[in-house]
Amino acid sequence: MTADLIPDNATRTYDCRQAFAEELITLAAEDPRIVAVCNDSVGSSNLVRFRELYPDRLINVGIAEQDLVGVGAGLANGGLIPFVSAAGPFLTGRATEQIKTDAAYNGLPVVLCGQSPGLAYGELGPTHHSIEDLSWMRAIADLAVAVPADPAQTRAAVRWAAAHEGPVYLRIPRFKIPSVTPEGAPFEPGRAIQLTDGEDITVLAIGTLVSRALAAARTLRAEGIGVRVLNMTFVEPMDEEAVLRAARETTGLITAEEATTTGGLGAAVAGLVAQNRPVPMRILGVPRQFAPTGSTSFLLEHFGLTADGIAAAARELLSHEHD
């Protein structure tokens, strides 16, 4: 499915956390098995209204993330569908063992909701940057890892995760982003959404970087450079067919993610193409370092995670190919 290069409403931005909360409330009205578990994060997880409507279906364990996941696993084992919600860095960093052993190893339908991931907590510094989570979560067997790119995908992700039979890690963006999902686009594990056509470069992006990839594609198209933009959505399982097709049909690949470059989308794509279809690549993200303290916009600019940064990477990749 291919959309226009830039949707008409791309200048408007939306809050994915609101979409998350609204869809969860809708699901709870339909299914009494839906429960929410949080770590003293009712407000930041946008669960205030959920608590008002379903006070007996929200469990607040306090600032205890290991208990948070353990309780969620217990509820799932008892036949409920728990949405375990907490700030991304603490959910994944403090409770990795429980996610691995209690949820994934036992194959329980625990929906792990990493709120405000990536660089969204910019001014709070490295302790709050959630940039390692994709690397950590992708390494755990039988755990789906999904990164919605806008409110429409966030709603679809919540509904899909509630019906999924195994554990899921969802990233829920904090800062507002444009709508980029074509109407009727599928939300399926291992299936990317192609948003633009192009024969020169493919940009494979997730989450907040998808809209920036589209903006870069618009700039490059004006320069006569055709860019294929893929919203990968799932880091695990990844759409390997779409990646390898892009490696065959375009000159090079660029991955873009609001995460470290050591183990997330870029590493997954690089590992796949290196073994099956070697192709020039650039991996955009945060290098293996502690990102500095600063606003989210400053940090994204600092690491080149902007439309201009993606466009520059494409030009550089093509220039080396023509040497």
Rank of each mutant, 00 (worst) to 15 (best):
D133L: 02
G62V: 01
D40Q: 00
T262Q: 00
V71C: 12
D40A: 14
G43K: 11
I254V: 14
R17T: 03
I310Q: 07
L318S: 07
R155I: 00
Q289G: 04
S135H: 09
D197K: 11
P148E: 09
E257D: 05
P292V: 10
G252C: 13
M238T: 11
Q98P: 03
V180G: 01
E132A: 12
M281Q: 14
T293Q: 13
R33P: 01
R138K: 14
V71R: 02
A313L: 14
G263L: 04
R221G: 08
G252F: 07
G184R: 12
F83C: 04
F290G: 00
D142F: 08
V110W: 09
L170P: 07
A291V: 02
L68C: 05
D200N: 09
I201S: 04
A313T: 06
G198F: 10
D150V: 09
P32L: 09
T262M: 04
L204S: 08
A222P: 00
L47M: 13
P7F: 09
G122P: 05
E97F: 04
L300K: 11
A192Q: 09
L24A: 08
V84M: 12
R171C: 09
V84D: 02
G88D: 12
A103I: 06
L299A: 03
L47E: 08
V210F: 06
A28T: 08
G79F: 06
S130N: 10
V37F: 07
R245S: 15
P7H: 00
F20A: 10
G125M: 03
L318Q: 12
V147C: 09
R171N: 02
L134F: 05
A217S: 14
V168C: 13
R94L: 14
E123W: 11
I254Q: 10
Q289Y: 01
T2F: 05
K100D: 12
T202A: 15
P173V: 00
L284F: 01
A103C: 10
T92G: 03
T26V: 05
A146Y: 11
N60D: 15
P189Q: 13
P151G: 07
P151Y: 01
I254G: 11
P186C: 06
R171K: 13
A162F: 04
T251I: 14
N9W: 14
L265I: 02
R94D: 02
V37C: 12
E52M: 11
L265E: 03
L265H: 04
V42S: 02
R138L: 06
I59D: 02
G263Y: 01
R49W: 00
L143R: 01
E52L: 13
R248I: 11
G266D: 00
A312Y: 05
H128A: 04
P32W: 02
H302L: 15
R159C: 10
V35H: 02
A87F: 15
V84L: 01
G62S: 10
A216F: 10
A120W: 03
L195S: 07
T255A: 08
L134E: 02
P55C: 04
V37Y: 14
T262N: 00
H320R: 15
V145H: 14
